[in-house]
Design a protein around this nucleic acid. Structure first.
Lengths: 365, 365
DNA sequence: GAGCGTCATCAAACCGGTTTAATATCTAAG
DNA sequence: CTTAGATATTAAACCGGTTTGATGACGCTC
């Protein structure tokens, strides 16, 4: 019953007991599966079987292995495991945006947090890249794909005619579009229907009595901008309301203010404006106020996002809230199941919420 | 001169030329260093030497290798390389924060973007974790450290008596504190002196004629909250101004509003308030306005962060701007040089900028 | 008690790189 | 014409896991 203690004492096992003073470099070199095997008096294979819940290990051996793992505080090396299994248990998120503009976007932090809450329980990690332009973006995806760092990637902020769906297909990497499905449908997509937010906004304003509603939309070229614009047109048509050409802006406050002035300069200015995000809406309120208009008495304003500030200003902003956290979590789970060979199930996302506050009111009669 | 074409044709080389239709799975299995070596008619070692700029490779061989790499579109597998070199070329960032609060923080996205701009040129990646509480936070660091996924980690939002400096020392992992240096000084730190922002704010208000200034500080227990509070006290003392006890809030708009009312309810309310972030400052403006006060005529307000909204509201907010992007880039470079064995050089960070807008004015006489 | 299936176990190969140590080739010096 | 020294090249070991195929022990049945 007594096994040879020293047989597999190999490499690190010996140096371990002659541990250097624990101060200088913490644990020094970390234990390996070989150390665990030696301590538990089994082979590396057995240790591997135990931690991967494979059958064919006696209860006694399993217990010795678990004790050894516990005693050494061992954890399998991610890189080594990835090398064997060809799965890195890591997903990639590439954000293409001028770095200084990233902080204007309430979506990013929420979405990342959501991804994390979905990924953590599955033992997955997230690698993040922020790139400034299309060229570096392509390189980023290529690198991530080719050096095997990630099992799959998220595609966010899709543009009309975005090259990325084709790119990931060509690279042979799993991907998930965050947003409405793309034309070709090559790459699976998961997004909330934010068009319904716009429709809710229009119907809210209409029920208040507004008949002449303007729209400040987001940066041109983005799929979600087009989607919201289309939804807006559709909603107006459905409600049998006349259409003011939407004014394009780029999600910044300055652009929001500019667009607002443009709408208010019309011969017949709108009595209400729907903005593509809260930042522009708030800038719009400020712009309108500076012209002597009162919100909501003279102009109703609807935002989009429900940023934390939305109800800290005067008047509190009526807006559309998306549950981005849940969206992120669902996206993470969907992409993991995709990379693990499972089919893609489009998870049901909670619908957008329409938050009525005080920036909307019946129009002046 | 003609070498045996087939000698090292090994594993993947054969299957490569019988490439399956390129449609189904993109590139299929990616080429390895062996494929490159076979194509270039050299050994794996030579390929390795070439890509790592090691001497001892003839110009001809080097060229053949480069051609082969180009032709195959090969890139070294990150995991395999990490396994050999014991360096993952990856850094970790763990954010401990209730996920739904992450979006209130203008620091996070900017800092991440800054890290990225520092890391990308060095070929490093960033893995991100968002954790809800202290327990999962500890586990996150332990996992990252023990499974060898990262070479080093950033420590942000340090708390007074934060366990993490000790933890990373114990785990033997390189780390960089993002913020003011910690008491023990075990772990290197890199932070802007945001106390100077508070001092600038006080001196600005004093020069306008304010003598009775309130402070709404951030969530208790954070090192940077304490630092700013101390700076505030110091600035008042230096300016020979009386001190109103600072009111603690938690960075949210609601707390900012509450704190503002608390200060304005004093027997002798302050004529100016300095807030620990813009969100609370804006909520404070709204709160003051709702009491019939006018900003800045009856109350001057100073924020902190300079969020994009700061100059989209009325009145535009006087605030303190930190160059978080540069800070993030410097932090990335510092941590990389730390993990690569180089010494730690505390980079010079640009000082905070004091942005005077319209929310401050001389007090009513 | 021979034959057979089941189960636990482990040595060895493998993943795709890096690194070492030995070998082959070429020059220059003696 | 040797021989030493420099240079180019590679086979093999290694990193730390996973996986396969072989082996041995055990309990059954007939």
């Amino acid at each position: 019953m007594v096994r040879d203690q020293g047989k597999a004492g190999g490499s690190a096992g010996g140096s371990r007991q002659a541990m250097p003073p624990p101060s200088r470099r913490g644990g020094g070199s970390r234990p390996t599966i070989g150390d665990v095997a030696a301590l538990a008096q089994v082979s590396k294979a057995t240790v591997s079987f135990v931690i991967n819940d494979r059958p064919g290990v006696s209860p006694q051996a399993r217990q010795r292995v678990l004790d050894a793992i516990d005693q050494l505080g061992w954890q399998p090396n991610a890189g080594a495991r990835a090398l064997s299994t060809k799965r890195s248990q890591t997903l990639g998120l590439v954000m293409r945006r001028p770095p200084e503009l990233l902080s204007t976007d309430p979506f990013f932090p929420q979405f990342v947090a959501g991804i994390e809450t979905g990924l953590a329980p599955l033992g997955y990690a997230l690698v993040l890249q922020v790139v400034p332009d299309e060229e570096t973006e392509r390189q980023a995806y290529e690198r991530l794909a080719r050096d095997g760092r990630v099992d799959g990637v998220f595609l966010t902020d899709l543009r009309t005619d975005d090259p990325r769906p084709a790119l990931v297909t060509e690279l042979g990497i799993d991907a998930l579009i965050v947003g409405p499905p793309q034309h070709g449908g090559q790459v699976p997509a998961l997004g909330v229907d934010d068009g319904s937010g716009v429709r809710r906004a229009v119907s809210h304003l209409r029920s208040l009595g507004h008949r002449w509603i303007g729209h400040v939309c987001g940066a041109a070229g983005f799929v979600h901008t087009e989607a919201r614009c289309d939804a807006w047109r559709g909603a107006l048509a459905d409600a049998d309301l006349p259409e003011i050409p939407p004014v394009a802006a780029d999600f910044t406050g300055a652009a929001g203010a500019r667009a607002t002035h443009q709408l208010l300069d019309l011969d017949r200015p709108p009595t209400a404006i729907v903005y593509a995000n809260d930042l522009m809406a708030i800038a719009g309120i400020t712009a309108a106020t500076s012209r002597g208009l009162r919100v909501p008495e003279d102009l109703s304003v609807v935002g989009f996002d429900d940023i934390p500030l939305a109800d800290c200003i005067a008047p509190p902003l009526t807006t559309v809230r998306q549950d981005v956290l849940t969206w992120g979590r669902a996206a993470a789970q969907a992409l993991v199941s995709l990379t693990e060979g499972g089919e893609f199930h489009a998870a049901e996302l909670p619908p957008v919420e329409f938050v009525v506050r005080a920036s909307t009111a019946p129009p002046r009669s």
